[in-house]
C-alpha cells in the first residue's frame, strides 16, 4: 500500500515536472513567434526625410589606372594569408561611361550612368568575387527590402527574386536588418529605424551619402539626424568596419571572426564602390577570417570597407543569377543593388 502511494507520488511528480517543461516550451514558442516569425510593420511616419529626390551627377575624372589596386599598400598581406591578385581596371582607352549605349558582356555592364566589371579570383583555397562599380548618379545605387516592406521578423525573400523585381544589374545581400530590433536603418534616403542598442551591442555603422561618398561610424557616436542633414542616403548597422580611412582593421572582438563566407561593400572614391563576396564553408573555398578580409579590402585599394551579413546570408548576383556560390539557401531581408537609369 505504501509502495503504491509512493509510486503515485513519484508519477505525480514526474507528470508535474513534465507539464512545467511543456508549458515553458509553449511560452518560449509564443515568444519566438512574436520575436521571429510575425513581422512587425513600422508605421510610415518613421520615414523622416527623403534625400533621394535631388541627385546631382558625380563628376568623374580619368579613371584611375590602379584602382582597385593590389600590392600598392604600405603594409603587406600576412604571409600565412591568401595572396591577392588585382581586380580589373576599366579600359583606359574607353571612357568610363558610354554616351547612351549599353554594352553588356558575361562579366560587365557599361552604360551612360553605370560601369560594372565582375571578376572571380581563386587564391589557394579561397574563392572571392569582386564587382567593381562606378555610378555617375547615386540614383543607381539603391537598396531594397524583401517583399518591398520594412518589417522585422521573418520578412525575407530569395535575393534573386528581389533582384529581378528591382531590375538590378548587380546585387549583394545587406545587413539582414530584420533579424534585429535595433540599429540604424536608412535606405534610399529614408530613415526607417533609429533605435540604439544596449552599449554592449554597439556596432559600426556604414553610411553612403547622396554625393557618392561613404563613411563608417561607431554606433555610440552616431547621430542619425545630423547625418541625414548631411545627406545620408544609405546606412547599415552590422559590421564590423574592415578598412577605415585606408587603414585595415586588425582587432575584431567578434564571435564570427573565423573563416566564413563574407559579403563586403568597399569604397574607393565618390561614385566608385565595390561589392565583394567570399565563398566559404564549401570544398572549393573555406572562407576568410575578418582580419584577412580587411587585408584583402585594403589591398584592393578600398579607402573604406564594411562587412555586411555573411555566412549563409552571403550572396552576390549579376544579371539575375548567382555570381557567388552561396553556402546555404537562406533568404535575405534586404539587398544593396545597382540599377540603370533609362532616359
Amino acid at each position: 500500500m505504501i509502495n503504491i502511494c509512493k509510486n503515485r507520488k513519484g508519477i505525480k511528480a514526474i507528470v508535474l515536472i513534465f507539464t512545467e517543461i511543456v508549458l515553458t516550451g509553449c511560452l518560449l514558442c509564443v515568444i519566438s513567434l512574436f520575436h521571429h516569425v510575425i513581422p512587425m510593420n513600422v508605421t510610415s511616419d518613421m520615414s523622416l526625410n527623403n534625400n533621394a529626390t535631388v541627385m546631382p551627377n558625380i563628376i568623374f575624372g580619368t579613371p584611375p589606372a590602379n584602382t582597385p589596386s593590389s600590392g600598392t599598400s604600405a603594409t603587406p598581406a600576412p604571409s600565412n594569408g591568401p595572396q591577392y591578385t588585382p581586380t580589373p581596371t576599366p579600359n583606359e582607352e574607353d571612357s568610363l561611361f558610354t554616351s547612351g549605349k549599353i554594352i553588356k558582356t558575361d562579366s560587365s555592364y557599361k552604360s551612360k550612368y553605370v560601369n560594372i566589371t565582375c571578376k572571380t579570383y581563386v587564391v589557394e583555397n579561397v574563392t572571392y568575387h569582386v564587382q567593381d562599380i562606378y555610378v555617375r548618379n547615386m540614383s543607381c545605387f539603391k537598396t531594397a527590402f524583401a517583399n518591398d516592406k520594412f518589417a522585422t521578423g521573418s520578412n525575407t525573400e530569395p535575393i534573386i527574386e528581389i533582384s529581378k523585381a528591382k531590375n538590378a544589374i548587380v546585387a549583394i545581400n545587406g545587413d539582414q536588418y530584420a533579424a534585429r530590433k535595433e540599429g540604424v536603418v536608412i535606405r534610399n534616403g529614408y530613415l526607417y529605424r533609429d533605435i540604439s542598442p544596449a552599449p554592449s551591442e554597439k556596432q559600426d555603422i556604414c553610411v553612403v551619402y547622396n554625393d557618392g561618398t561613404m563613411k563608417i561610424f561607431n554606433e555610440i557616436t552616431f547621430d542619425s539626424a545630423k547625418e541625414l542633414s548631411n545627406g545620408a542616403y544609405q546606412a547599415w548597422s552590422f559590421g564590423p568596419a574592415l578598412v577605415v580611412d585606408g587603414v585595415a582593421q586588425t582587432q575584431f572582438e567578434h564571435g564570427i571572426s573565423g573563416r566564413n563566407p563574407r559579403s563586403v561593400i568597399g569604397y574607393f572614391s565618390p561614385g566608385h564602390f565595390c561589392f565583394v563576396a567570399v565563398d566559404g564553408r564549401q570544398d572549393h573555398s573555406v572562407g576568410l577570417k575578418l582580419v584577412d578580409l580587411a587585408t584583402l579590402m585594403r589591398d584592393l585599394g578600398c579607402v573604406q570597407a564594411y562587412n555586411l551579413d555573411g555566412g549563409n546570408t552571403s550572396k552576390m548576383v549579376f544579371n539575375n543569377e548567382y555570381y557567388s556560390s552561396p553556402s546555404g539557401a537562406r533568404e535575405v531581408s534586404d539587398i544593396v543593388y545597382i540599377c540603370d537609369i533609362f532616359e
Binding site: F34, H35, A179, R180, K181, E182, P197, A198, S200, E201
Partner: peptide
C-alpha cells in the same frame, strides 16, 4: 547577442 532576446 544580435538577436537581443533579453531586450525584447
Amino acid at each position: 547577442p544580435a538577436m537581443n532576446f533579453i531586450g525584447f
